[in-house]
């Protein structure tokens, strides 16, 4: 698949959506759709990340590292310690020989 095509399509599903609200005026979404949109990110992220981690050939290491990273992000409320801590945990588990 062509990279240029992906880039163009990404623009096509990003920019017009941003522009929509500014051009159409106020969007009056029914409550059903508002609550639908509210659950989209959480569901998409979970459906993306969990099979990705568990489907990896080295999934036990990655699972441990993800739990450490997630815990750090939850406790500190920021991204950098979570990513660094997650990688650190990964190398520790790998170094120990699991």
């Amino acid at each position: 698949m062509s990279v240029l095509l992906v880039i163009f399509l990404m623009w096509a599903v990003t920019y017009p959506v941003r522009w929509l609200g500014l051009s159409l005026g106020r969007l009056h979404l029914p409550p059903f759709w508002l609550s639908f949109l509210q659950f989209v990110p959480v569901s998409v992220f979970a459906a993306l990340v969990v099979p990705e981690v568990l489907g990896s050939p080295e999934w036990p290491r990655r699972l441990v590292a993800c739990m450490v990273g997630g815990l750090l992000m939850w406790r500190t409320g920021s991204l950098a310690p979570g990513i660094l801590g997650g990688f650190a945990a990964y190398w520790v588990v790998r170094g120990v020989g699991f």
Binding site: M10, V13, R18, L20, G21, L29, L37
Partner: peptide
């Protein structure tokens, strides 16, 4: 790929409507 991106981007429509 495009469908998933679109779904994740739908929130931008809400944002831009409320910034209008």
């Amino acid at each position: 790929i495009v469908l998933s991106s679109l779904i994740v981007n739908l929130r931008f429509a809400m944002y831009s409507a409320s910034l209008l």
